[in-house]
Computed example of a mutant assay.
Amino acid sequence: MRELFLSPICLFKVTELSPLKYVAFIMGVWFSANFYGHFFAGKIAKLTSASNGEPTIFSEGYFGDIVTAITGLNHESALNGGEVLQQLFSYVSVYASFGVISVIVGIFAILISPVIKKMMAGIH
Rank of each mutant, 00 (worst) to 15 (best):
E60H: 11
N80K: 15
S49I: 15
Y91Q: 02
V29I: 07
P55F: 09
F108E: 02
G42D: 03
G99A: 13
Y95W: 14
I101A: 12
Q86T: 01
N34V: 03
K118H: 07
L79K: 14
A41P: 00
F35K: 02
F40Q: 00
L11A: 12
S7H: 14
T68N: 12
L111H: 07
P19F: 12
F89C: 06
I110P: 03
M119Y: 08
A50Q: 08
P55M: 09
S90K: 10
L6S: 06
F25K: 11
V84H: 04
Y62M: 05
G106S: 14
M119D: 02
S97R: 08
G99L: 14
M120V: 00
T15W: 14
T56M: 07
I70K: 06
G106N: 10
A96P: 03
K43H: 01
G61H: 07
K43F: 04
I107K: 06
M27I: 15
V23K: 15
G106A: 11
A50S: 13
L47H: 12
V103A: 13
G99Q: 07
S97P: 00
L47A: 10
D65Y: 08
V115W: 15
Q87V: 06
A121W: 15
S113E: 05
I101M: 11
I123G: 03
H124T: 11
K43M: 07
L20K: 13
I9F: 14
F31Q: 01
A69M: 15
V67M: 08
L20N: 10
I116Q: 01
P19E: 08
S97G: 11
K13W: 08
F12S: 03
A96K: 05
V23N: 08
Y91N: 07
S59N: 05
M27W: 06
W30I: 03
I116L: 06
L85M: 09
P8I: 07
A109I: 03
F39T: 02
F58R: 03
G72H: 06
Y91R: 08
M120F: 10
S32G: 09
F63D: 04
S32T: 10
V29C: 00
D65N: 15
P114N: 05
L85N: 00
T71P: 06
L73F: 14
A109H: 11
L111M: 04
Y91P: 00
M27P: 03
V29H: 04
S77I: 05
S49M: 10
L111S: 04
N74I: 12
A109E: 11
S102F: 14
N52V: 04
V103M: 11
M1V: 04
F12H: 09
E60T: 15
A41Y: 05
S49H: 13
N34Q: 10
F35G: 01
V105M: 11
G81S: 10
E54I: 10
S49C: 07
E83C: 01
Y95H: 12
I112G: 04
L4I: 11
S18L: 09
H38D: 02
